[in-house]
């Protein structure tokens, strides 16, 4: 393996953190979903790196499943975006604050 495992892990941790910051800071639902996407792809990267480090295929198998799962999640989330847009004419998460207490 040419790239050491530490480098891959550092890169994926940085990407994961950036995605998390995007989720926490943004108020637009679509941007939040993009942040989640960045987080999950960072995870995929570290799986591939670890898989190459340990010389077994489990990690790569996991990445394939992760991608399939992500696409399922995205399709449900986007359906949710359309539905929320229809209900309140907004995808700003701040406009959904009717429940308190």
């Amino acid at each position: 393996m040419i790239v050491p495992l530490e480098h891959v892990l550092v890169l994926s941790t940085v990407l994961f953190t950036l995605g998390l910051i995007c989720v926490l800071a943004r108020r637009n639902l679509i941007m939040i979903l993009i942040g989640v996407e960045v987080m999950l792809n960072a995870v995929g990267l570290s799986f591939v790196g670890a898989s190459a480090f340990w010389q077994n295929l489990d990690g790569q198998m996991m990445v394939i499943f992760l991608m399939a799962m992500t696409s399922a999640e995205v399709s449900i989330s986007l359906a949710m975006v359309v539905y929320l847009q229809r209900r309140k004419n907004s995808v700003d998460v701040r406009s959904f604050n009717e429940m308190r207490g």
């Binding site: 994961f16 639902l29 939040i32 790196g49």
Partner: peptide, 19 residues
């Protein structure tokens, strides 16, 4: 939103344990 973030955490946790 909460569930998607939790998914990210659980996946990254598994990735680190696997590493």
């Amino acid at each position: 939103v909460f569930g998607a973030v939790a998914t990210g955490f659980i996946a990254f946790g598994i990735a680190l344990i696997y590493s």
